[in-house]
Write a protein that binds this DNA or RNA. Structure first.
Lengths: 155, 155
DNA sequence: ATAATTATAGTCAAAGAAGGTCAAAAGAGG
DNA sequence: CCTCTTTTGACCTTCTTTGACTATAATTAT
């Protein structure tokens, strides 16, 4: 693994798995010490790798007995999950968030790796040769349509 | 050996062979130092000798822990077929022709039915909310990129 | 009760660490 | 010479790491 953030990401995902695949609760300072980094690096890891788009929910509490709890979004109902993603996409979506959503669909086994790559290619910045407000709108349109198709072809 | 670019090309190909013939991951700056050249020369080598057409795919990441990964892809007659489709697409393609091309890929077993549906959804008229000369241009751009991905995401 | 202290977590911007782009300069071949 | 390829370097973009400062909760002292 190439850098601290990736390592911590893997570690946290492992913790989630080990505890039944749903949730994990950590002490920020404790993890930071374990990996010998500053505490705020945990915030960075969470902000870049455990977002809604990735399919996670994060709660936390400060002060004595504080914690950070990462919960994996329920994906038992595919249609619910995909509807959730469509809501996140809305009328516009950045490339970064699109990537996260596509990755989440792959990790939740709604699409294959090849399908993920195809969808990614279709919504890349260089592919959609458009200026900025429109590009994000178009990307959202494509993604929503693609998700609809995925939804159908699941049945 | 004639020049630095050729030498680096050979070196990288050797690395791929040594590691099982599939893939190699490098640090740009490290290779540049080894051959005493500027880092951007690596980009030149990659752009001129490790393209899709050459049968390679390249991924990279910037920032701490960054890397460049070159993967060799099997290239039989399929690449010829897909290159042909890309030529057909050119700078613009109607929805009808796009449908035909997608259908053809399915019939030739380069994509699954689900992949076909996904690609179709991505290039539909209603998805690409654009007026006519631009819509066909955009559709072509998406299709060409997707075909590139299909070309190298074969495992 | 209230205030002070301690224990956590959050934010944000700067610094650092890669890789990418582009065009000018240099070199090679015809 | 002229053209095509290669080499170089200045500048750009993206991702990560770090730390000072802030916000909030629990505990302890007054």
């Amino acid at each position: 693994m190439r850098n601290m953030s990736d390592i911590i990401e893997q570690y946290l995902k492992q913790l989630i798995q080990d505890s039944g695949g749903e949730v994990v609760e950590i002490k920020r300072a404790h993890i930071a010490e374990k990996f010998d980094c500053v505490p705020s690096q945990l915030n960075y890891v969470i902000k870049t790798r455990f977002t809604n788009e990735h399919g996670y929910t994060v709660e936390s509490k400060r002060g004595g007995g504080g914690y950070i709890r990462i919960t994996k979004v329920e994906t038992h109902s595919k249609s619910e999950y995909l509807a959730h993603l469509k809501r996140l996409i809305g009328d516009g979506v950045s490339e970064q968030n699109a990537n996260r959503i596509i990755q989440s669909m792959f990790e939740n086994e709604v699409i294959t790796i090849k399908e993920a790559k195809i969808i990614n290619a279709a919504v890349e910045r260089e592919t959609l040769m458009l200026e900025l407000p429109y590009r994000d709108t178009l990307r959202a349109s494509i993604l929503r349509r693609v998700i609809d198709v995925i939804l159908y072809s699941e049945e």
